[in-house]
Amino acid sequence: MTTNFTSDIVTSLPEHMLSEILKHAASNSIADFINVMLCCKAFDRASNYENVSMEKVSLVPWHRCEKGFQKRCKAANNAEALYRKGMINCFSRRKSESGLRYLKKATEKGHVEAVYTYGIILICLDGELRKQGLRVLLSLHLPKPNQGNSRMIASCRSKTEKFLRCMWVHVALTGPKGICCNCDCDIEEKPNHSTPSECQAWDASNDVSHCCDYCFWDREANLFCSLLRKYLIN
């Protein structure tokens, strides 16, 4: 009687509300998500892998349950799943073209860390791709360089390092060649003349008060490349 009554309540709820319940269930644990989804057909129909949280899934999943869940999320164009696939393909599996496609898809869905990584990779490729990369990074609408590093950049750096620690890094990037500009950025900080040392703190907040957008992101790209070399497996 109780089971039927509960089932009637569930089936009476609109699908968007059931989908929201599933989304929060996944943010607690993958097991909770699967159990809720299996408890009745209404939840199964409302399952939305595109927007479900992947917070409790390892960045590089090892368990079958997590692998299956992440695969379904990727198939549904879940932005976080696309970002993770792009990172692994670019820096671990040596599938740069495929990795860039996944990062681009995640970027188009507004995934902040994907925008950050995709933009920096393009900047490192120089030429027209460098200009495209800068446009991608400017879409983050970060504070101007004279306002210092924002929390968003700190968050992107933190997640990048956490991700790289979890996987086998087999691919490094060459930092961008600096361009000659008229900003008052300290010449020692320009990638054209100096590359940040390996021991330079990833979260360092050196003075960038007079950097233009190009110099600011060149410097950030060089920090990103230094981090890659730190975890690179020869």
Rank of each mutant, 00 (worst) to 15 (best):
M1E: 15
T3A: 14
T3Q: 15
S7R: 04
S7T: 07
V10E: 09
T11P: 10
S12H: 10
S12M: 13
L13D: 14
P14L: 12
E15V: 09
H16Y: 04
M17E: 10
S19I: 09
A25R: 00
N28C: 14
N28A: 04
S29H: 15
A31R: 12
F33K: 03
I34W: 11
V36N: 07
M37A: 10
M37Q: 15
M37Y: 06
L38P: 09
K41R: 15
D44S: 14
D44Q: 14
R45F: 15
R45S: 15
A46E: 11
S47K: 13
E50T: 01
N51W: 07
N51C: 10
W62K: 14
W62C: 12
W62G: 14
H63K: 14
R64C: 15
K67S: 10
G68S: 13
Q70L: 14
R72D: 15
C73F: 06
C73D: 04
N77Y: 12
N78I: 01
E80D: 13
L82M: 10
L82I: 06
L82Y: 01
Y83A: 05
R84H: 09
R84W: 11
K85R: 11
N89F: 01
N89R: 04
F91M: 00
S96C: 09
E97P: 05
S98I: 05
S98N: 01
L100P: 03
L100G: 00
L100N: 05
L103R: 00
L103P: 04
K105H: 11
K105D: 13
T107L: 12
H111P: 10
Y116S: 01
T117F: 12
T117Q: 01
Y118V: 13
Y118H: 07
Y118D: 11
I121M: 12
L122V: 02
C124S: 13
G127F: 00
E128C: 07
L129P: 07
K131E: 11
K131H: 11
Q132R: 08
G133I: 06
L137W: 04
L137R: 03
L140R: 09
N146S: 06
G148L: 12
S150Q: 12
S155P: 11
C156F: 00
E161H: 08
E161I: 05
K162W: 06
F163S: 04
F163K: 06
L164F: 03
C166S: 14
C166F: 01
C166D: 14
W168C: 04
V169P: 03
V169I: 02
V169T: 08
H170I: 08
A172M: 12
L173M: 09
L173S: 07
T174V: 01
P176A: 03
C180Y: 07
C181S: 01
N182D: 13
N182A: 08
D184Q: 11
D184N: 11
C185M: 06
I187V: 05
I187K: 06
I187M: 07
H193C: 01
T195G: 04
Q200P: 04
A201M: 10
W202D: 05
W202P: 01
N206F: 08
S209T: 08
Y214Q: 02
F216L: 07
R219T: 09
E220C: 11
E220I: 12
A221Y: 13
C225I: 05
C225M: 03
R229I: 13
R229M: 13
R229V: 06
